[in-house]
Design a protein around this nucleic acid. Structure first.
Length: 666
RNA sequence: GGUCCGAUAGCUCAGUCGGUAGAGCAAAUGGCUUUUAACCAUUGGGUCGAAGGUUCGAGUCCUUCUCGGAUCACCA
């Protein structure tokens, strides 16, 4: 194994060397340069963090110094009055040097930060004493504190004791009497005026990002921008604080409503409860293959069988699939179940919960800026899938095709294949959902297809029939006016082995009805991209909702909803299927789909069927994508910006020509 | 996986037509006892992501690779 030397990790340069030398000199002055503790005072009632002192003392200061305009200094009288009171307040507090020390001959200023607030300290050569970390006593040697102070670097941790005062410019400060060295920053701090610009550094080394975001000053331009737009740009730290507030808000809401928090297995013998590729692992002692869970759903419903009427789990799920700005291989979901409730009750409940926890996260507001748009969490729309497509896709003809009859669905299917042919010839390999994010293009593409279907109704009907058998006949195709080109395209793209197995499976093995429903699912996903305001989409096709109950009104429709916000799918819920016999059959259907190529169809879990057979009350359940909700609340457009340590490809430094060659050969 | 964009000092960035590697901050040294992105003076700091190629000469042009971002496809 190649174990790097310390010097390889910290990479010596003029800056790290200077800091190392400072550390050695500090050791001579204070002894132990990494002391074990520092006790803070409690004038604020609790441990005096910098934030608490700032909040507490600012109130005192403001009693004497009325709000100053920018650049304005307090009068001598105001200052004397404030200091008369503040000087009585002795504090002991600690923090990181938020700026390089500003030394002016025989006195100096520096700001300390506790990661949230910053507090200025004033060190005067003749007043300050240093603490020896070994004896914990004041060092008698003359100017020890001043020497210590001059060995401090931007980013070091120190503890200070002294009294509060207001400077000539009106800033609250600590007049330092004793100073104690606590810890060294051996790396230079990031630019004090800029965030880490390189997204790779900020995500791979989140601690640097957090330091940079908590230590830096805002530039004048940024302050102006915030004033102008009224939107505060969150620091990295604030993003994750908001995330924590959202989660605790949700927890509290559920706890207050009688839910019990549970923990179910993360390593599971079967990866099921959702349609996704799992991560595989292996348990040596048990000698079994295990999968990281893709959803906790089936375990939570076993608990409903066991008698828990309201359960929730704040769970991390793992899906071995592609990464994108809204997909992470591990992501956090809040999943909960409520007995005797149906999908409508669940929508009401989830809406109330989301509103409440959004308020908690934002500090009261239900309106948040997201990019160019504003999300209003005070109004949740509810639309059936059909209504949503009508309203948001803007393709009235599509509606005609989709909803007139099954026959039309077949035609749509065939039409889609043929219009893809056009794309194929134009040089772009594209499938049905190849539509771009460009709404005009998307619309045009749908309209062209719809037009095409209308004009070629009879012919398409025949095409649909023709290709519903496993071995389409070229001659029959020709008789029906299908050109050789078209025939070959469809065979090549739909039937032939080397191409998309799933399409083949849909066409050959499944009924057109199911295929159409799958298309519907895809269309709603596409349509969802254009849905901005919080919207529950209901009435999903049953065939793509294997764990959900059918609607009492329509056996083909599932009592299921998905919540779309700003084009993102944020929640998925339904009336839980509790008939073990039907559940068994639905999962068997899914297994068949797996065999015919759909790798992400659901896996049958026999024990779950057994559990259901003991009886589960009628219930509704929901899974809420926490990461995505946090994205919306923090105006972040990548899921990796709301995950503290997102997964990254390992770094490969100093790759050589050989590496390049090897990579080429692979 | 496809397409496009990016990688230059510790940090943020500039680098024109292919012709000596730059600025601000940070660092070092000196000055300054209430500063506010402190200031003044001086100094040091570079594998220009990696490898190869074209050229008298490459940060700049070409090829390949690495990492990251955006976007599309797949998926929640």
């Amino acid at each position: 194994m190649n174990i790097p030397e310390y010097n390889e990790i910290i990479e010596p340069n003029d800056q790290t060397e200077a800091r190392r030398e400072h550390l050695e000199k500090l050791r001579e002055i204070v002894g132990n340069v990494y002391p074990n503790k520092f006790e803070r005072s409690k004038i604020t009632g609790e441990e005096d963090t910098i934030t608490r002192i700032v909040v507490f003392a600012t109130l005192v200061k403001n009693q004497h110094i009325s709000k100053l305009t920018e650049g304005e200094k307090p009068s001598d009288e105001q200052r004397e009055a404030a200091n008369a009171e503040l000087n009585q307040l002795r504090v002991r507090t600690a923090g990181r040097l938020a700026v390089p020390p500003r030394v002016m001959g025989k006195a100096a200023f520096v700001h300390l930060s506790d990661g949230v607030e910053r507090l200025q300290i004033y060190v005067r050569k003749q007043d300050a004493k240093a603490i020896n970390n070994d004896t914990r006593k004041i060092i008698e040697q003359e100017n020890a504190a001043w020497e210590l102070f001059n060995l401090l670097d931007h980013g070091d941790f120190i503890g200070v004791e002294g009294f509060l005062f207001v400077t000539k410019t009106g800033e609250l400060s600590v007049h330092v009497e004793t100073i104690q060295f606590l810890s060294k920053a051996r790396f230079p701090m990031p630019d004090k005026m800029h965030d880490i610009a390189d997204a790779e550094i900020s995500r791979r080394y989140r601690y640097i990002d957090l330091i940079a975001s908590s230590l830096r000053n805002k530039t004048d331009e940024e302050l102006e921008e915030e004033k102008r737009t009224g939107v505060k740009k969150l620091t990295t730290r604030e993003v994750f604080e908001r995330r924590a507030k959202l989660i605790s808000g949700m927890r509290r809401f559920l706890d207050d409503n009688g839910f019990i928090e549970v923990e179910t297995p993360i390593l599971t013998p079967k990866a099921t409860g959702a349609a996704a590729e799992p991560f595989e692992t292996y348990h040596n002692a048990l000698d079994i293959k295990l999968y990281a869970r893709i959803a906790p759903e089936l375990y939570l419903k076993r608990l409903m069988v066991g008698g828990f009427e309201k359960v929730y789990e704040l769970n991390r799920n793992f899906r071995n699939e592609g990464l994108s700005h809204k997909h992470s291989p591990e992501f956090t979901m809040l999943e909960f179940y409520c007995a005797y409730m149906d999908v409508n009750g669940m929508m009401d409940f989830a809406e109330a919960m989301i509103k409440e926890s959004v308020r908690k996260a934002t500090g009261g507001s239900l309106q948040v800026k997201y990019g160019e748009s504003e999300i209003d969490f005070s109004k949740f729309e509810r639309l059936t899938m059909k209504q949503a497509i009508l309203k948001y896709s803007g393709f009235p003809m599509l509606d005609e095709i989709l909803f007139e009859s099954l026959a039309n669905l077949r035609q749509l299917n065939a039409a889609l294949l043929l219009t893809d042919l056009g794309k194929m010839e134009a040089g772009t390999a594209a499938g049905f959902t190849s539509a771009t994010s460009d709404q005009e293009l998307l619309k045009k593409s749908f309209e062209q297809r719809a037009e095409f279907v209308k004009e070629n109704k009879n012919r398409l009907w025949k095409i649909a029939e023709l290709f519903s058998v496993s071995e389409p006949d070229k001659n029959i195709a020709e008789e029906n006016g299908i050109t050789e080109n078209e025939f070959e395209f469809i065979v090549r793209n739909i039937i032939s082995e080397e191409n998309d197995e799933r399409k083949k499976a849909y066409i050959i093995e499944k009924s057109f009805e199911d295929y159409a429903e799958n298309i519907l699912g895809k269309i709603i996903q596409q349509t969802g991209k254009t849905i901005m305001k919080p919207t529950f989409i209901t009435d999903y096709p049953k065939s793509i909702s294997p764990l959900s109950k059918a609607s009492p009104e329509n056996p083909n429709v599932a009592e299921r909803f998905e919540l779309f916000i700003c084009g993102m799918e944020c929640a998925n819920g339904f009336s839980e299927l509790n008939d073990p016999q039907e559940q068994y059959e639905r999962l068997i259907d899914q297994m068949k789909e797996r065999e015919t190529g759909d790798e992400e169809a659901m896996v049958l879990d026999e024990d779950y069927i057994r559990a259901l057979s003991y009886g589960m009350p009628p219930a509704a359940g929901i899974g809420i994508g926490i990461d995505r909700l946090v994205m919306l609340l923090t105006n972040k457009h990548s899921i990796r910006d709301v995950i503290l340590f997102p997964h990254m490809r390992p770094e490969k430094k100093n790759s050589t020509a050989d590496d390049a060659k090897n990579a080429e050969e692979i």
